[in-house]
Simulated assay, not measured.
Amino acid sequence: MTTKEYSVLELCEQVLFVKKQTFKNSQDKYLSKLSENYHVEIIKKRPMIIALTTKGKSPQQVDDTKFLEIIGCDIGGKDITLLKFILKSILERIIVPGQDEIAHHAKQAGIWSTDSRGSVKNYMAFLRENNIIVEPMTIPTWDNNPLVKRVIDKETGEILPTYYKKICNRIYFDYAKDGSSFQRERLPKNTQEAIEMAYYNSLPEMMESKIYPLYAKGHSDKYINNERMKAQDKLLREIGTAYGINYCVRMDEPSINPVIKGKLKEYFGIGV
Rank of each mutant, 00 (worst) to 15 (best):
I86Y: 00
R93W: 01
K88N: 13
K177T: 05
K88I: 05
Y163P: 02
E208D: 02
Y175V: 03
G98Y: 07
T162F: 00
P204Q: 12
P188E: 13
L203E: 12
E155V: 07
T156L: 14
T191S: 07
I152V: 12
V134H: 10
I152H: 09
D174T: 09
Q108Y: 02
I111G: 00
S116K: 11
I167S: 08
K107C: 00
D153V: 02
I95W: 08
L127Y: 15
K166R: 09
N201A: 10
M207W: 10
K177L: 02
E158F: 14
D100K: 15
I111N: 03
G179K: 06
V96C: 06
Y199I: 02
L91E: 05
R128N: 09
I133L: 09
T156S: 11
N130E: 01
C168D: 12
Y199H: 14
G110R: 02
M206E: 03
E129N: 15
S181L: 10
N145D: 14
E193F: 09
D178E: 01
V120T: 12
N190T: 03
V120L: 04
R186S: 03
Y200A: 09
N122D: 06
H104K: 12
D153H: 10
L147C: 08
R117H: 10
N145V: 02
N131M: 04
L147N: 08
R128I: 00
L160F: 02
I102N: 00
L160C: 08
D143Y: 08
A198D: 15
I171C: 05
L160Q: 12
P140N: 09
L87E: 00
K154Y: 07
E101L: 12
S181H: 08
A176S: 15
I90D: 03
R186F: 01
